[in-house]
């Protein structure tokens, strides 16, 4: 089954649509920060009342988590079959006799 050319693909994944979606997404992001000029935020700790605090905090903590996960991945990631290992226990005791005869 061959892949359809991109202009025949679903409208949602055409490059032109994706460019538009990025613009819309960017506008919404800007609006949520700008709206804070009109909606005063009642924070608990002071800093959380700053304009765009949640935006910056959300973005930066997510970057931190992704980078941390990436670094941890170098240490913790193993091939998918890592746990599929044969038993390490020695064979049955009856095998010992065979060992002796050889």
């Amino acid at each position: 089954m061959s892949q359809l050319p991109s202009d025949h693909d679903h409208w949602l994944v055409r490059p032109a649509t994706i460019r538009k979606l990025w613009w819309i997404f960017g506008t919404i992001l800007a609006l949520t920060v700008a709206a804070q000029l009109f909606v005063p935020v009642h924070g608990y700790f002071g800093v959380d009342e700053w304009i765009g605090f949640n935006a910056g905090y959300g973005f930066l903590t997510c970057v931190a988590m992704v980078v941390f996960a990436k670094l941890l991945g170098f240490v913790l990631k193993r091939p998918a079959g890592y746990y599929k290992v044969p038993s390490r226990l020695s064979p049955n005791i009856s095998d010992d006799i065979n060992d002796d005869q050889t």
Binding site: H42, A55, G58, F59, T61
Partner: peptide, 19 residues
Amino acid sequence: TADHVLTQLQLLLFAGLAF
């Protein structure tokens, strides 16, 4: 409350940007 909805949207949408 307006400010709670707003701050939550900010938080989540910018997390989406980070993704």
